[in-house]
């Protein structure tokens, strides 16, 4: 890498001579080192799934969540530095609350993503802070139907039908593109999400992992909750089976 040792990469407030901000690019590296997170948008809902890398077998399963709830109807999953993810989700909750206080109605996801984008961008401006080392998937179902956004460390955000961030995002994106997302039922989307996470997990390189999935849709009353146990188990079993046939 040419950036190293030039001195142009030591602060978010410094451009390199060719107009890059290396600190933001390095923040993206932190994202790439983390377990994969994906989001699927289908006709009547959204599904989020993360590959939670387990660094010790002493961890209590299911206790250490990586998918957060921002409002009754808004979900957030991050890839990157876990603690940054918590910080950003706290900010997202504050923004959602603030929107409710101002307008007395549930915040549309666009508004929350917009405000989070501004917040994250502010951390790319100054030498006194570092950028967020996370990419964030946001999902919702509201009166306008489902929506999915991704906020990057640079502060940009885009809407998606299917999103993937973290280590396995390339392979996950390829798999997502193969799906006919608008035609899937929410339950089918859960099965596909589990399959993709199992597929992108690199057994050779990585330690163990735990699958975590949540959804928003008619079956959850358009509230954000973790996927019900029976469906989760079914999806996980199918994912493991699919992996064997894939190989």
């Amino acid at each position: 890498m040419t950036s190293i040792g030039t001195g142009y990469d030591l602060s978010a407030s410094t451009y390199s001579p060719d107009g890059r901000i290396f600190q933001v690019e390095y923040a993206n590296k932190a994202v790439e080192n983390s377990g994969t997170a994906i989001g699927l948008k289908v006709k009547d809902g959204i599904v989020l799934a993360v590959e939670k890398l387990v660094h010790s077998k002493l961890l209590v399963p299911e206790a250490n969540r990586r998918i957060q709830t921002i409002d009754r109807h808004i979900a957030l999953a991050t890839a990157g530095l876990l603690a940054d993810g918590r910080q950003l989700s706290n900010r997202a909750r504050d923004e959602a609350t603030n929107y409710r206080e101002t307008y007395n109605s549930p915040p549309p996801l666009k508004a929350v993503a917009d405000r989070l984008g501004l917040y994250v961008q502010a951390y790319t401006l100054y030498s006194s802070v570092r950028p967020f080392g996370i990419s964030t998937i946001l999902g919702t179902v509201d009166q306008d139907g489902p929506a999915l956004f991704v906020v990057e460390p640079s502060g940009v955000f885009f809407g998606y039908n299917g999103a993937a961030v973290g280590k396995g995002r390339q392979l996950a994106k390829t798999e997502l593109e193969k799906l006919k997302l608008p035609e899937l039922s929410l339950r089918e989307a859960v099965i596909e999400a589990a399959r993709i996470i199992y597929l992108v997990h690199d057994d050779a390189k990585e330690k163990e992992f735990e699958l975590e999935m949540s959804w928003i849709g008619p079956e959850s009353n358009n509230l954000h909750v973790h996927v019900p146990k029976d469906l989760f188990d079914e999806a996980e079993a199918k994912a493991k089976a699919a992996l064997e046939t894939f190989e």
């Binding site: 190293i4 040792g5 030591l10 600190q23 390095y26 080192n33 530095l81 570092r130």
Partner: peptide, 17 residues
Amino acid sequence: NTYDSDNTVFSPQGRLH
């Protein structure tokens, strides 16, 4: 190394020394 004097600096590998 160059990237470990400050909290607010990511190393090129995305680490916080």
